[in-house]
Design a protein around this nucleic acid. Structure first.
Lengths: 187, 187
DNA sequence: CAGGCTTGGCTAATAGGATTAGCTTTTGGC
DNA sequence: GCCAAAAGCTAATCCTATTAGCCAAGCCTG
């Protein structure tokens, strides 16, 4: 029997891709094994069960989101930077609903957790956006939480099929960007 | 063997309560049956499996949320109404994390679905809040989606243990209310 | 190049949860 | 009191995660 040549990174990448395809709640060890051309128990040589797999997919997702937002923001400031960041974030979530869903409820276990580093990078990107606005130092954390809530809420609701009725969803998102910009400017 | 005297409403209520206690993903048919003093298969006389149970819990949750927001808003207008609505919504989600979690991804199947009615009531409450602001008719849907995203995002992130770092979460939420008020006022 | 250790894959077995089938008893209406 | 529907129950099935233990492949060393 030939080796499949797997390693943890390959398993996690395939798991993330599969989660995007079939939805995180339909991601099963058996399905993932099948996708990788291997029997289910073999996966346990690379990840420590489903919870561990979920953690790793989450870390990958946050890291990718940080890259996406970080590079989208490059070269912009103020409203342009805000719009670029929010659009990049939403695009990432809609493009990768499964792996993004894996991030909810996962918190870094310690400072050496790859998740912690990825989170820091993602927050750093948003924090940089806020530098284009005149916000009191004491308000920055509140503003960050607000932006995160806005992004997370909109993207997950859209991904879950909320927003059914008439108005155009992209238009709503652009409206939301304008709203956030006005609100941040009027401090 | 004495009858337990269950009916669908009792099963759903117990399921919702249990979901709040142990988390929606740890809500199991076996655990629910045990809580009700009955064997697992007996539940199937009242609900059509887990998916149906989830749907019904979701409908209950949205209905209760609509009641909570609706009555919190009574007698207020403008910023006070906005603050009351957002606080009531967040309080509901934090108080009932399990049943609220059941609502994500559940959409009404038809106009006769109890979920549809509950959703309409909840949206009606928020729509009433927006009447206290001068918003163009064409912007109302966008504003509703924004408010929903903000509430949903903040409450679910907090419930999932996001917002770990320093700043006080209640303070952030009050800041968010002020932010939303300013943004809606400055149209 | 042989031997051996580590690694990655496999089969078989265990355990838990959802669901269905089919039986039995209660209970409300006559 | 009788009967049909409703509400429980046991037993059985299926699916998924996970563990145990076996075996081959591939590398590293001599």
């Amino acid at each position: 029997m030939p080796r499949a040549g797997l390693d943890p990174a390959a398993v996690v990448a395939a798991g993330a891709a599969l989660a995007d395809e079939v939805g995180l709640d339909h991601l099963t060890m058996g399905l993932l094994a099948q996708r990788l051309g291997v029997r289910t128990p073999s996966l346990y040589k690379h990840v420590n069960g489903q919870e561990d797999l979920n953690r790793r997919i989450a870390a990958l997702a946050v890291s990718e989101a940080a890259d996406a937002v970080g590079s989208a923001v490059q070269g912009y400031a103020g409203r342009d930077a805000l719009a670029a960041a929010l659009r990049a974030f939403r695009a990432f979530v809609l493009r990768h609903p499964g792996r993004y869903a894996a991030t909810t409820g996962v918190e870094p276990t310690g400072p050496d957790d790859p998740m912690a580093d990825a989170s820091r990078r993602l927050f750093g990107a948003f924090r940089a956006v806020l530098r284009g606005y005149e916000i009191a130092e004491s308000d920055v954390d509140h503003a960050l939480r607000m932006l995160r809530s806005l992004c997370h809420g909109f993207a997950t609701l859209q991904g879950a099929g909320g927003f059914r009725w008439s108005a155009d969803v992209d238009e709503s998102f652009e409206w939301l960007i304008a709203f956030a910009d006005r609100g941040l400017r009027a401090m």
